[in-house]
Nucleic acid binder design. Structure first.
Lengths: 169, 169
DNA sequence: TAATTGTTGACTAAAAGAGTCTACATTAGC
DNA sequence: GCTAATGTAGACTCTTTTAGTCAACAATTA
């Protein structure tokens, strides 16, 4: 249940473009450098965002990527949808009898609620929220010390915590 | 961002035990049969639940698994935590400078919110909720036809939808 | 035409997911 | 104490996904 680098890099790339973009397109190479992601990999990540109508690309010298809409018109749910596919999908399609075993039905409803919760968050925010939040944080709200427990969430005791995993960046 | 079979099978196993259990322990073999999961695999899934103090196991003839607490005393967040590890973990630990690049900080906060949302759902429910929900559904609320779009969530237009993936069961 | 940009697809290595199998430890009942 | 019925542990395997790299190519500007 962890986010792929596609989503993370892709989201960062979009924020990057939104911040740099002053009319002229932003070069993929520059995004890769600023975000510290390999250019070749970023190309693949950007693909779905172009296909999904979030970005326009122009080739040749002076070319690059630009947003097709204003940041506040880009809901994050759309971004994640393009990059990650359906959230928390639990498809029990192959056995159509799942519902007769009402047990499966009960747990399934839980997974639906889980996905809905994430959907709610992503639906309530736009790219603009990330940029603005970012700018206020850049003014000092987010100090390195406060970042130490980079493991996400698990608020309070008895919370989510278990295996130790690692990830790129 | 999809749930592993561990969580799904494990949760179903717990519900199974909670429903069957009338004092005497429930045999793993029976759970495997009822839930249509291989016995050998279920053994591995059950392990963390025992280690985590949710289940007690007794060996030998007449042995099996039993809940250590009443279903209403078992928060689902605890179950998922044991089976899945931290929800939506995004650990950028290896580069301690993430926060200086405030961009990373902005997206990171989004991932935290996402994990919190899931956490909220799981924290508000107990095993008892699944059992009861289940029983009312068994009385006819959940008909096979209503189950066709087994792909989870994505409520409304413009919602979450993209890649086509498949999974066991 | 040459340099600069994005596009596409084949390819790969490593990790995680999903499971199997075998040997072993406990215990109840005879 | 023996035997059958249970759970336990760990090594092992196969498949899919993740996370990339690389090379050829297409478009565009100067």
């Amino acid at each position: 249940m962890r986010l792929s680098t596609r989503s993370r890099y892709g989201m960062r790339a979009l924020v990057d473009i939104a911040r740099q973009s002053r009319e002229e397109p932003v070069r993929l190479k520059d995004i890769a450098r600023r975000q510290d992601v390999s250019l070749s990999y970023l190309e693949h990540i950007i693909g779905p965002l172009i296909a999904g109508g979030l970005l326009r690309s122009t080739r040749g010298p002076g070319g690059g990527l630009s947003l097709l809409r204003e940041p506040q018109e880009i809901p994050l749910v759309e971004v994640i949808s393009l990059l990650e596919g359906p959230l928390g999908a639990v498809d029990c399609v192959s056995s159509p009898d799942v519902c007769q075993r009402s047990l499966a039905c009960a747990t399934r409803r839980l997974w639906v609620e889980l996905a809905d919760a994430m959907d709610g968050v992503l639906r309530s925010k736009t790219l603009a929220d990330l940029i603005h939040q970012d700018e206020s944080e850049a003014r000092g709200a987010c100090v390195p010390e406060a970042m130490k427990p980079l493991r996400v969430a698990a608020p309070g005791p008895g919370g989510l915590s278990a295996a130790g995993k690692r990830s790129p960046q």
